[in-house]
């Protein structure tokens, strides 16, 4: 197991939430019904960042439907740039960008990590997904 994967799983454990609770929370925060998805794959087919994701966007939704913890430990939500291409194309009208944001929020609201800009090396800033940095700082602004 890669270190990143292990860290992701440890962080998931720190959430102390069951997958049932997580799916409910995702739906509450996003306002979307993840069970609307019928797995046509159009989101993944059009996603500009799908190649970088552990799970393709449609697989993230499938994992949520199956209550599979991998939905929360995969890097997909942090790669998602909220470009909304998936939302525009989805035939079932699922706003997947909102779902991804809700999943991120579940982590961010736990305030588990304490990112400070000073503490990040140039290399880290270059390598970290932009959306992760944006999200990390957003929780500091309330």
């Amino acid at each position: 197991m890669t270190k990143a994967k292990q860290t992701a799983q440890e962080e998931f454990a720190l959430l102390e939430l069951s997958m049932d609770e997580i799916v409910d929370k995702v739906e509450e925060l996003s306002g979307e019904n993840v069970f609307d998805c019928y797995q046509c794959g159009m989101c993944s087919a059009g996603c500009p960042l799908a190649e970088e994701m552990d799970l393709l966007p449609n697989q993230v939704l499938h994992a949520l439907q199956m209550k599979d913890p991998e939905a929360m430990s995969a890097n997909s939500m942090w790669i998602c740039a909220s470009c909304y291409t998936c939302q525009v194309r989805c035939p079932k009208g699922v706003d997947l960008a909102k779902v991804m944001e809700a999943m991120r929020q579940i982590y961010l609201r736990k305030r588990m990590d304490h990112v400070s800009l000073d503490g990040l090396s140039h290399r880290e800033i270059r390598r970290l997904p932009q959306i992760a940095i944006v999200a990390s700082f957003r929780k500091k602004t309330g």
């Binding site: 797995q39 794959g41 159009m42 993944s44 087919a45 996603c47 393709l56 449609n58």
Partner: peptide, 12 residues
């Protein structure tokens, strides 16, 4: 054509 093979989880 931009597609995805949802069975193998690969974009194509």
């Amino acid at each position: 054509a931009w597609g995805a093979d949802t069975l193998s989880g690969k974009r194509m």
